[in-house]
Amino acid sequence: MINKQEKTNLLSQGVFIFVCLAVLTLLEFLVAVTFNSLVVLVVVALVKAGLVLYYYMHMSKLNENPDAATDHESYAFKTGTNRAGLWLFLLSDAFVFGGLMAMRLNLLGLTRPDLNQNLGLFVTVVLLVSSFFMNRGETHLHNGNRAGFLKNTMITFILGLAFLLGVVMIEWHAIPSVAEAVLHLFGEPAGRTPLKPSSGVAGAAFFMMTGMHAFHVLTGLIFLAVIWVNGKRGLYDEKQYPVEAAAVYWHFIDVVWIFFYPALYLIGTAI
């Protein structure tokens, strides 16, 4: 059984990592709008990704070898196998996003699509905050606090939905009148023509990258809904791996955005 001190430590660790990530995101934004150094942006993105991979996705659990592991039918052993499988899948998926990044660098080089910077920062922060609540929810479940788990997962879900709508409805102009009204709130200058898939390689790259990412957000939301509904029924009080898996997947989506955000909104000059 975990003692109270450890429980509090785990929660405050989550807060500390979140503060680091938030500061780094702000730094990124400020670097981009002032002296725009590619090197700094890349380094910041790598540090952010490293923090999420280590603290939120707890990559080190891959090395865990519980004593029960000799019995191949035990839950502990199967959890270890499932972890290996999930990480292999994420490795494979990373190649899709890596390919998209290569595509973007090849086609656009050190230019970027002309997008609303404020909105970009806002959706990025929304996704980052959702990752914080995801970690908090998982930690609560680990600490045996089902109500806390459900509350935080719900907040994660809502924030994730907000991110998805922000990208699809507003950045994509799915409903033009809404998009224009919201963009106006974010200080959009009048008369800038919205990006379309068919408007040159910038539009193609932007829609492809955000589209592939949004598809992953959508699947992540489905997993969150599943663990919330089943968690409410107390299914994960003992066997918690499904929650861990959904959380790791959700943070992976955040890691992808940690690279896509600078690639689409920050590096180079707008065209």
Binding site: L91, D93, M103, S198, A204, M208
Partner: peptide, 30 residues
């Protein structure tokens, strides 16, 4: 596990180029 994603991606890009007129491999669009 790893490399197969890239043929899937390259074929997807052509599919989207055909469906949505996206200019990945169309020199006229850069």
């Amino acid at each position: 596990l790893t490399a197969t994603q890239l043929i899937g991606l390259s074929f997807q890009l052509v599919m989207f180029q055909r469906l949505f007129d996206m200019g990945f491999f169309d020199p006229a669009k850069g």
